[in-house]
Amino acid sequence: MTLLLDTIPYARFLGLRSEQDGDVLTVTMPFADHLVGNPMLPALHGGSTAALLELTAVAQVALVWPRLRLPRPITVTTAYLRSGKPRDVHARARISRAGRRVAHVLAEAWQEDPAQPIASLTAHFSMDEHDS
């Protein structure tokens, strides 16, 4: 699965790495200066964390439900729960439902403690091979 993320330019831009344990992926975004959105705090840009969550969701869906095309987002909602510190972020996604056309995914991102997530994502992805 590291292979899939390695083929996505934006995942490489963010520096994402992943580990697979059975069917579960854990994706890590190692801290890097170019992820910072607020140099005063400093804090990660919300866009970095949201993109990590979205790509984790994409990779998890593609792992469990492989298709010719990557899942494409229909609606994505990100809740920002805590400020992202200048450290590594980890993320994991859970597929609530995967149908022929649509998959629903929940994902969370955390730093030190998985019980203290910094952001959560809920999203629907299109699994359709034929839409444009």
């Binding site: 330019p9 866009g47 970095s48 949201a50 993109a51 790509l55 990100t78």
Partner: peptide, 10 residues
């Protein structure tokens, strides 16, 4: 990437 669109809209 969707993540780029997200970052820009955020």
């Amino acid at each position: 990437a969707g993540g780029l669109v997200t970052a820009m809209l955020d």
